[in-house]
């Protein structure tokens, strides 16, 4: 390398790593969209009596559906039933984590264990986006941890708002925000034929199993969706 090139290189500013900021930006729409859902859970926790214990679940359970189902089941059933219900709903996290474990195989153990605590639907989607833009392993870590912490902070903040506002919130109208938050995760997949088959199969199974006990229908939909996806992928590979 010539002296001029070396001088140019020394004078050039170091590339700015915006992975942390990008992680926060990627998850902000989810924070906004899930705010009403968090508020509904906060209001449920307040109505339940033990606000602090209910709110603590925002970080400990880190999953709205399981958290809400646990609190609601506590009202009607035993602690064991509430725990089983919450765990059944969160069993899908095993599958998310399996997918991310393959993506993070080169990452250090501390990150895989710390990141695991923040694996949930929005961060799973954001992590996939992070894979597409990955510059380095360190950048991927900053991206995911920033996204996970921002989501958790926003989630627990809006849950606290819901706990304070309580019955003043028009919860039945706010609940429409939850599907609207999930739509952007599913709709773009409809452009790809393979994913379309997975979406169709999972939707049919979810509808057919809507009467099943909490969480089991989601697991069945995941199982059928995965099977359809694997068959579709194998067929398209065979065609090539």
């Amino acid at each position: 390398m010539s002296t001029a090139a070396l001088l140019d290189r020394a004078a050039a500013p170091a590339p700015i790593d915006r992975s942390g900021r990008d992680g926060v930006a990627a998850v902000l729409p989810f924070v906004a969209g899930l705010a009403p859902f968090a508020a509904v859970i906060g209001a449920t926790a307040a109505a339940h009596g033990d606000v602090v214990a209910g709110w603590t679940g925002s970080w400990l359970i880190y999953g709205g559906s399981a958290h809400l189902a646990t609190l609601r089941t506590l009202d009607e059933g035993t602690v064991v039933l509430a725990v089983v219900t919450g765990l059944l709903i969160n069993a899908r996290l095993l599958v998310y984590s399996a997918g991310l474990a393959l993506q993070w195989r080169d990452q250090p153990l501390w990150f895989r264990l710390a990141g695991a605590a923040m694996v949930v639907d929005p961060t799973f989607v954001v992590a996939e986006a992070g894979r597409a833009r990955r510059i380095s392993l360190a950048a991927e870590r900053r991206f995911f941890l920033s996204a996970g912490l921002a989501l958790g902070a926003g989630w627990s903040f809006f849950m606290a708002v819901g706990a304070i506002a309580g019955d003043h919130l028009a919860a039945s109208h706010l609940e429409v925000a939850v599907p609207l938050c999930l739509v952007p995760l599913v709709a773009p997949r409809l452009r790809d034929a393979g994913s379309r088959a997975v979406v169709a199969a999972a939707a049919v199974v979810a509808l057919a199993t809507s009467g099943w006990s909490a969480g089991t229908g989601v697991l069945a939909a995941i199982a059928v969706g995965c099977a359809v996806g694997a068959v579709t992928a194998r067929r398209s590979e065979a065609r090539l």
Binding site: S65, L182, A201, A202, L207, I222, C226
Partner: peptide, 21 residues
């Protein structure tokens, strides 16, 4: 190949459930 589709299947099921709810 199988696990790759778990995310979209799960989110679809959650979407259907949340619309119904």
């Amino acid at each position: 190949r199988t696990v790759r589709h778990a995310g979209v299947a799960a989110v679809t099921a959650l979407l259907v459930g949340s619309v119904r709810h």
